[in-house]
Each structure stands twice: as C-alpha cells, then as structure tokens.
C-alpha cells in the first residue's frame, strides 16, 4: 500500500499503488491544489507510485 500524508489537514491515508494522478483521484483531491513530494522531490502526475512509497501532499493554497 502507498502512504499519503496530507500536510494541510495533518491526516494520513493509505491507498493502492498507481500513478500520482490515480492516487489523488482516489483520495478525491484536486491535483491543482497540491504539490506531491516523494523522497524530498516534487513529482509529476504521471509518475508511478509503488507499494511502500510515502507521499506528502503540500497545499498550494494559502492566505485569505
């Protein structure tokens, strides 16, 4: 399973492997609103994510 930390909500999810785009879609997160980080590197939506990978979602929305 893939572990996904959401920086904004402080929550952690687990989900099945797939592309970043698939994972965001599964978690019902709009890809326009986050940057996705794996191993301290920002990755694009087409990247394949494997079992045991850990992703961090950085919200791009700030301010008021």
């Amino acid at each position: 399973m893939v572990t996904v930390h959401d920086e904004k909500t402080g929550t952690t999810h687990t989900t099945v492997k797939g592309t970043v785009k698939d994972i965001l879609s599964t978690l019902n997160i709009n890809s326009e609103t986050v940057l996705v980080v794996r191993d301290n590197t920002v990755i694009t939506l087409d990247k394949e994510v494997q079992d045991d990978d850990v992703l961090t979602l950085l919200s791009v929305i700030s301010g008021g």
Binding site: V42, L58, I61, S62, G64
Partner: peptide
C-alpha cells in the same frame, strides 16, 4: 508560486486564513 518558494527554500508557513 508554491513550487518556486519550495525550490528556493523560503521559510513560509503555508497557512490559510
């Protein structure tokens, strides 16, 4: 802009009002 600040390593609290 968020990616720019991340790559430039600016210290920013990404808080929403």
């Amino acid at each position: 802009t968020r990616l720019y600040t991340l790559l430039k390593k600016f210290q920013v609290a990404y808080t929403e009002c």
